[in-house]
Design a protein around this nucleic acid. Structure first.
Lengths: 205, 205
DNA sequence: GTGAATGTTGCACTGACTGCAAGTTGTGCC
DNA sequence: GGCACAACTTGCAGTCAGTGCAACATTCAC
């Protein structure tokens, strides 16, 4: 449940907890069914049934079938932004971005089963891969905004800050593809660290 | 017609030329209507009518409504790959990637009208922006593959090559966003060159 | 000019997605 | 413990994207 909106904190009201589990159940059901029967062949009706809700309710949780497949998380952008801004004020931007990004990567791997299924799905469905890329771009945009938020500089004049955040994302993508090429042995986070070192974004020192 | 599959070459058979213009007409009609009435409100039927074909034919050219809006080009990946591989064999990879990427950027700006409308659309529709990001990712993937094709190295071992291509894409994205922040004055290609210099990808010298 | 490809169209159909209104369940309060 | 409000779920009816198929039209190659 590493990807639910509430972050899995045991607090929150009954209502909130139920919503979080329904959301997670829908995502899981969608991923499982997509792996069983294919992304296109699987219908929303089936996913809803598997998660124990009505088809209409499905759309109360995810705007589209694809959103359910990738486990779209409306709160993610806000949380990432806050995480970057919450880093110690003395910390350099690249270090802040690096830390938050690596934390995010660890979150992806946190549930190995789900992580594996998601990878599998992305590999099988080009449309889904494109969708995930879109989500990655959204993440990149948030990181860039947060980075400029820290420096307070003008995006029209300061290329450097945005470039740092984008290069960091490029490093993580490169790490992922290397990881795949290597048969997913070891941890993505470790590869991502190495890639970030290679591009000189926030290396310890 | 900077974005048509045949690249605007005056040769090709009548059939090919007709297909190319129909394709371009559909894209243009889609973009215009989307700007007029909104991406969602506009229907495929309207777009087809505006381009003078039946709705059924629309789907012979574009798989989805969004594909028509972004002017999806099935041949792009292949052309980019070839362009990278066609660079002089003595040329370093980063230089080859830089050259092809900059050429691609110039192609985007080639038709200022269309370029402006596309920007406008992306700014208005988040769904479309995500789609465009997906297309950007596909371009990145092709560049990476072509880069490895040039070096002949193993993607599982050689991180550097892929990283170079991805950093180059990051630079172009950063350049675009700076361009936007600056109100789109001047040329994107010039900003992209500066950004590529900043990250040290294929700088002259 | 003729036959083979290739492209266009209409038709019928599936399934994603939406607005609305009614029913159900959790929450806060006495 | 029960009441009143808010939030969530559901069914219904409808719109529209997208697809397979078969008939028709156009272009091509010789």
């Amino acid at each position: 449940m590493a990807s639910t909106a509430t972050g899995g904190l045991p607090e929150a009201s009954l209502r909130e907890r139920k919503k979080a589990t329904t959301r997670a159940n829908l995502h899981l059901a969608a991923v499982r069914l997509a792996l069983e029967r294919g992304t296109e062949a699987m219908t929303v009706e089936e996913v809803a049934a598997a998660a124990g809700v009505s088809p209409r309710t499905f759309f109360n949780y995810y705007e589209t079938k694809e959103d359910a497949l990738v486990g779209a998380d409306p709160g993610r952008a806000g949380r990432v932004r806050e995480a970057v801004l919450a880093r110690p004020s003395g910390e350099p931007v690249d270090r802040a971005v690096r830390t938050v990004l690596l934390e995010h990567v660890r979150g992806l791997e946190a549930d190995p089963q789900l992580w594996r299924m998601r990878r599998e799905l992305a590999a099988r469905s080009p449309a889904l891969a494109a969708r995930i890329a879109g989500a990655g771009d959204q993440l990149e945009t948030v990181l860039v905004e947060a980075a400029y938020g820290r420096t307070g500089s003008d995006p029209a004049l300061d290329l450097e800050t945005g470039l740092t955040a984008r290069v960091a994302m490029a490093a993580v993508r490169a790490a992922f593809h290397q990881h795949r090429a290597a048969g997913f042995v070891g941890s993505l986070a470790a590869r991502a660290e190495a890639a970030l070192d290679a591009v000189g974004v926030g290396s310890a020192g």
